[in-house]
C-alpha cells in the first residue's frame, strides 16, 4: 500500500452551455517522504488535480486514498501553500501561524511553543507580534510555510508558492523549503510551470499535457541531483540535459496542437 494513491481521477467543469473535461483518467502513487512535482503548461489541470487530492474539490470520478483512507478535509491531514502567502492581514504573525491549531482545537502550550520554535528555526526572530504587512514578501511566504507546517500535515501541497516572489528570494526560499521538508521527512507535491524549479526541488517530475489534462510522462531525477540543494542542483552538469529532455516533451504538445 502506497502513502498516497490517486486512482482513475476524471473531472469535468460544467457551465450552462458546456461540460469541459479538465482531467481524464489520472492515476498515480506517491511514497512517504517523496517530493513530487506536477509540471505542465497552463490549462493542463494541475491545480485542479491538487485541489482534488487535498479534498477541496470532489472529482467527477475516481478516488484519492491517503494511507489507505479516503481523503477528507475534516481530518486536516493536508497542508496547502498558495501562490501568495494569504496571511490574514488583521492577525499578528503569531495568530496567523497558530490559526490551524486553533481551528482544529489542537492548540496546547506544547503545540504553541513548537510552532513558535519553528518560526525561529526558519530565521524569523522577533516578528511574533508584528502584522503581515510589516514583513517582506519572502518573509511572509516563510511565515505561510510555518503556518502550514504547524498543524503537522501528512502531505504538503505547494501550489506555485514561489511565483509571486522576485528571483533571488525565490531561489533562497526553494533551498529553505527543500531543507525544512527533508528535515521533517514530509511528503510534498509541488505544482509549477517552471521546469528548473521542478527539476531542482523534486525526486520525480510528473509532466501533464493539456486538453483534457492527462499524465504525459514521468521523469525520475537521478540521485546525484536529488541529494543536492535546489540551488546546487541548478548548477550541476547533468541539469541542462534533464532540462532539455523535459523541454522537448513540452515542445511536442505545441506541435501536436498545430
Amino acid at each position: 500500500m502506497s502513502f498516497l494513491s490517486v486512482q482513475n481521477i476524471k473531472h469535468s467543469y460544467f457551465t450552462k452551455s458546456t461540460a469541459v473535461a479538465a482531467l481524464s483518467d489520472i492515476s498515480l502513487e506517491v511514497k512517504e517522504g517523496e517530493f513530487v512535482s506536477f509540471l505542465g503548461p497552463s490549462g493542463c489541470g494541475k491545480t485542479t488535480l491538487l485541489s482534488i487530492i487535498s479534498g477541496l474539490i470532489e472529482p467527477t470520478e475516481g478516488r484519492v486514498l491517503l494511507e489507505g483512507q479516503p481523503i477528507s478535509l475534516a481530518d486536516a491531514k493536508i497542508g496547502y501553500m498558495l501562490q501568495q502567502d494569504y496571511l490574514f492581514p488583521w492577525k499578528t504573525i503569531e495568530e496567523n501561524i497558530l490559526l490551524g491549531l486553533k481551528l482544529s482545537k489542537r492548540l496546547t502550550e506544547q503545540s504553541k511553543s513548537a510552532s513558535l520554535n519553528l518560526l525561529r528555526q526558519i530565521g524569523l526572530i522577533g516578528v511574533e507580534t508584528q502584522l503581515p504587512k510589516q514583513l517582506s514578501g519572502g518573509m511572509r511566504q516563510r511565515v505561510a510555510l510555518v503556518r502550514t507546517l504547524a498543524t503537522e500535515p501528512k502531505l504538503l501541497m505547494l501550489d506555485e508558492p514561489f511565483s509571486a516572489l522576485d528571483y533571488q528570494t525565490k531561489l533562497k526560499l526553494e533551498d529553505l523549503i527543500s531543507a525544512t521538508l527533508k528535515q521533517f521527512n514530509k511528503t510534498a507535491i509541488l505544482v509549477t510551470h517552471d521546469i528548473s524549479e521542478a527539476i531542482s526541488m523534486s525526486d520525480r517530475v510528473l509532466l501533464f499535457s493539456p486538453g483534457p489534462g492527462r499524465l504525459h510522462k514521468v521523469f525520475d531525477i537521478p540521485d546525484v541531483i536529488k541529494n543536492l540543494t535546489p540551488f546546487e542542483a541548478r548548477n550541476h552538469e547533468l541539469f541542462p540535459e534533464i532540462f532539455q529532455t523535459i523541454w522537448k516533451e513540452l515542445e511536442s504538445f505545441e506541435t501536436f496542437k498545430k
Binding site: S54, L56, L73, A74, D75, A76, I78, G79, Y80, L82, Q84, Y86, F88, L99, G100, L103, S104, T151
Partner: peptide
C-alpha cells in the same frame, strides 16, 4: 483564497 486556507485547516 482566504477561505481555501481555512477550509484546508478543516
Amino acid at each position: 483564497n482566504f477561505l481555501k486556507v481555512l477550509r484546508i485547516f478543516g
